[in-house]
Computed example of a mutant assay.
Amino acid sequence: MVSISGLPAFCAYAATALGLVALYLGVYLTATAHREIALIRENNLAAAIALGGSLVGYTIPLSVSIFNAQSILDCVIWGLVALVVQLSVYGLVRLVLPDLSRRIEAGEVAAATFLASASVAGGIVDAAAMTY
């Protein structure tokens, strides 16, 4: 027999996750010096790689926060922690590559790949640290 008794909780956590992803994208897109969406619309591969890596780097710990959450509020708090971690990763990469935005705007895939890799690595470490 199939039960859908968990459907309300699924819907609540999925909606929360979508809201947190939208918040993350809004904050991240505002924090970066380049305009990823416009660049992606212009077929800038570097912008797509950088933003895609950042999004994956955020959603990995977000999924762990959903898995471990005792409540929606718990999930939201840890989702916000993941947001701060990703913004910190971006800031650290900018310390290493001060001209990061210019390089992404110019379509330089090496800089974008480094940012994407750092974002995913930060997300994996963040997720592993969420062992509460």
Rank of each mutant, 00 (worst) to 15 (best):
F114E: 04
S65K: 01
D99M: 00
V85C: 12
A121W: 00
V64L: 06
A82Y: 06
G19M: 08
C75W: 02
R102D: 10
F10P: 05
E42F: 02
V21S: 03
C75T: 11
E105Y: 03
A22I: 12
A82P: 05
V81L: 14
A118S: 12
N68W: 04
A14E: 11
V64F: 10
A128W: 14
S101E: 07
V2K: 10
Q86G: 03
Y24S: 08
I4C: 01
A50V: 04
L55F: 11
I72R: 08
T30A: 13
E42W: 01
I60A: 08
V125C: 03
G53C: 00
L18F: 15
S71G: 10
F10S: 06
V56N: 00
G107E: 03
Y90R: 01
A22Q: 09
R103C: 02
M130E: 13
L83Q: 10
M1F: 15
L7D: 05
L7Y: 13
E105A: 14
Q86T: 06
A110R: 13
L73V: 15
D99G: 06
L45E: 09
S119E: 05
S3W: 13
L51P: 01
L29R: 07
Y90W: 09
L115I: 01
R102Y: 00
A112Q: 04
V81M: 10
S5N: 09
N44F: 02
A121G: 09
I60S: 01
N43M: 07
L62S: 06
L7P: 01
E42H: 14
G123I: 01
L39N: 03
T131L: 14
Y13I: 04
S3Q: 12
A82M: 05
Y13H: 14
L80Q: 11
A12R: 13
S117K: 04
A9R: 11
L7S: 09
V64H: 01
